[in-house]
């Protein structure tokens, strides 16, 4: 199971995801600026922000506990781990059998629980508010996400990401109604999980509306940098999950170095489209009131369930 080229692929992919993640964020921000008739920042701006933050002195509240300082590393570690599970460039990654799609969702949950705990550590009212809202979005999004993934799991008869992607990638091109439902549900969940419009606004600091930003208000310098970077990796991972489930064509098999350039090219095209699509969604939609979020996400959940039922119906 664990041969040398496979492990090399594994390490290559996880490092690649970690390094390339801010680029996707920069591209999405750039597209959004263009769509909104603003002059766009450089696509490399997220890297510069990270570098700036890493060089600053960290300011930590006096009553912070060890948990507060540990959390950024745990969150970053979780996202790095997720980047190792999701097939981005290649399927058949040697690490992937260690954690299937259920474990992947649990990894995101682990990161969320730690961020929420850290937000409550200082004891400001904003921290608690952010933690509460984040957990609200989390418990609504998680079942919908699992149902989406289960639909794919039922189609391929496996909860392992490798097998799912291989099954979906190697079959004839056809629009499967259950996958169409699942894709719609996944899109909604992905927007919510990544704190994007219409659920949250990553650029706001208005107390009435912010969710994720309220949680990380007390963080600064290298801790903030790690969290921001983790946010970028999470977005990249979600986009990759979407690509892997709903547009897996062109992905290489681990150890097959000759397929790698094609996989890179395919990924670049798909990511470019995905980033532009994200900017478009964020420009066209307005942010929902917080208490409309349950409706939004339960719609996603229902779509996912419909997808699953459709699968059972069409399979007879």
């Amino acid at each position: 199971m664990a041969d040398t080229p496979g492990i090399a692929f594994q390490i290559l992919q996880s490092v690649f995801v970690v390094l390339a993640a801010p680029l996707l964020l920069g591209w999405a921000n750039q597209c959004r600026a263009w769509l909104q008739n603003r002059s766009a920042p450089s696509i490399l701006l997220p890297y510069r922000t990270l570098a700036k933050l890493f060089h600053k002195d960290a300011v930590i509240a006096k009553n912070a506990s060890a948990l507060f300082r540990l959390t950024p590393y745990v969150v970053f570690g979780c996202m790095w781990l997720a980047a190792g599970i999701v097939p981005v460039l290649a399927t058949d990654l040697p690490f992937a059998p260690a954690a299937d799609i259920i474990a992947l969702v649990a990894v995101f949950a682990l990161a969320r629980v730690f961020s929420a705990l850290a937000a409550m550590d200082i004891g400001t009212s904003f921290g608690g508010l952010g933690a509460r809202r984040e957990m609200l979005i989390g418990f609504l999004a998680e079942p919908a996400m699992l149902m989406t993934l289960f639909t794919a799991a039922f189609i391929s008869g496996s909860t392992q990401f490798n097998t799912i992607v291989e099954t979906l990638g190697n079959r004839e091109f056809a629009i499967d109604p259950s996958l169409a439902f699942a894709a719609a549900a996944f899109l909604m969940v992905a927007l919510a999980e990544n704190a994007r419009i219409p659920i949250d606004n990553p650029t706001t600091h208005l107390e009435l509306t912010m969710i994720h930003e309220a949680m990380i208000l007390e963080y600064s310098a290298r801790h903030l940098a790690l969290i921001e970077w983790a946010v970028a990796i999470k977005l990249f991972a979600y986009v990759s999950i979407g690509i892997a489930l709903f547009a897996p064509w062109g992905i290489a098999e681990a150890g097959n170095w000759s397929a790698l350039p094609l996989a890179f090219a395919a990924l670049a095209v798909k990511l470019t489209l995905a980033g532009a699509g994200l900017a478009l969604v964020e420009t066209l939609l307005a942010k929902l009131r917080l208490f409309l979020a349950p409706e939004f996400l339960s719609t996603a959940f229902l779509l996912a369930v419909l997808g699953m039922l459709t699968h059972f119906l069409t399979q007879g």
């Binding site: 004891g123 609504l140 149902m147």
Partner: peptide, 24 residues
């Protein structure tokens, strides 16, 4: 799906317990 929902709600509940009793 019920199990998934309950799992996520449990996580919320224990963030509450831990955050309010031990943190802050």
């Amino acid at each position: 799906a019920t199990l998934a929902l309950a799992g996520a709600l449990t996580a919320m509940c224990f963030v509450k317990v831990y955050g309010i009793a031990f943190l802050g």
